[in-house]
Design a protein around this nucleic acid. Structure first.
Lengths: 221, 221
DNA sequence: TGTACATCAGTGAACGCGCGTTCACTGATGTAC
DNA sequence: TGTACATCAGTGAACGCGCGTTCACTGATGTAC
């Protein structure tokens, strides 16, 4: 469309110039986005390379310019989703110190982030236990790290200062599990309205409250 | 082999005679067993009809004499696995009444049943959240029923008599979730020895104890 | 700035493969008489 | 008990399809001079 001389036409300018590197990065992202979209109602293991390539608007063989295999794309998807999860945890951390307020703030933060990034959370929670593979291993490793971090955070609380590492890990696992099931409930929520969300949030808060309320009465063995 | 007259040879007796109906039932079971075996390291959605038929020792087209589709086999697998799960719950119920002993007995029962039917528990826990389909819907429905039953059981305890239905359900969900994560831990346990199992059992007991220990301090809102 | 060459994201044909499903069939089991 | 016919679990050939992967290619972008 632009003329063949050294000057640029208007259309050449409005279509902002991008380097080959930038274009490649965009296609890569288009592949990740297409995969996430297809994952809305299927497991990762049922995703085909050809479908994902088609969704990203490229020919199947061009897929290999970006990933050596679907598993490699899967692991990239775990990394992308984990960035979202870590963002949420950072946000939750920068909140209150008191027990009750902390629970409320944490659950609200969880709710906001899940609703803002449903695809990432759906991917992580669904794939977590769905078989064996690089994707599942990557998720398992990250969630274990996350649980360990939470145990360290818990150790800072007055009432938990005396707890053994084992007990702190046990409690952290229980909390992570309760949170994960809240994520799944939010993703499957029907109908999709504020009222349903509020009910789920209330239950999530209660679950955490029941766990924390037992702390003063806890004796390790 | 056997003679053509009215008498039976020894071999005719040892190879017990089976009706056409019985043979069909056996092939059906062989299909279910073959599927469970293949599910050891894959999700149900990645199982092919041809593989399952091959595993059962029949030709692919004969599959249709037993199930109209793989989904139908999947739902039959849910039913079979749920029978195992219900057997476990019945066993757990026929135990103690005191809090502490109940927790210990329940976790031991869980452990025994999981180890005795790893394939059923692996199937149920793995498929639970792995996408959308008849299999996932069947599992979700059964687990919801199970959680409701547990809430009813909880209502019988002295300290929980005053609790609202909502709070009882919340607590039941928390317990079911903790138990499910114990099942997953047992199935993924490495190394596979008594020591590892004991550690997991101890953690599972602690998780439940932490939940129950909070009961006296609980105030609904 | 202009030219000649290198790079490389994306193309399109082709491959062999396992898939679900159809169809007409076989032959052992079951049943009616 | 013996015979003739019905039932039906399992067979095997065949189909069209989407799959992952290979390969030689194209043509725009980037670089060296």
């Amino acid at each position: 469309m632009g003329d063949s001389g050294g000057t640029r036409t208007l259309s050449d300018v409005t279509v902002e110039p991008v380097s080959r590197q930038e274009r490649k990065q965009r296609t890569r992202q288009a592949l990740l986005d297409a995969a996430l979209e297809l994952l809305a109602d299927r497991g990762f293991a049922n995703l085909s390379l050809r479908e994902v390539a088609k969704g990203a608007g490229i020919v199947p063989t061009a897929f290999y310019r970006h990933f050596a295999s679907m598993d490699e794309l899967g692991v990239a998807l775990v990394e992308e989703s984990m960035r979202t999860l870590r963002g949420m945890i950072r946000a939750a951390r920068s909140d209150s110190k008191a027990y009750t307020h902390l629970i409320r703030a944490s659950v609200r933060t969880l709710h906001e982030h899940v609703r803002a990034h449903e695809d990432h959370f759906r991917f992580l929670t669904r794939e977590r236990y769905s078989g064996t593979g690089p994707v599942q291993r990557a998720i398992g490793a990250e969630l274990k790290l996350f649980s360990t971090d939470l145990a360290i955070d818990l150790a800072r609380f007055e009432q938990l200062r005396e707890w053994s590492t084992e007990d702190l890990r046990m409690m952290a696992d229980l909390i992570v599990n309760a949170m994960l099931s809240t994520v799944l409930e939010l993703l499957d929520a029907r109908p999709r309205d504020a009222e349903t969300d509020e009910t789920l949030i209330r239950t999530a808060e209660k679950r955490l409250r029941l766990i924390f309320v037992g702390v003063p009465a806890w004796r390790s063995k």
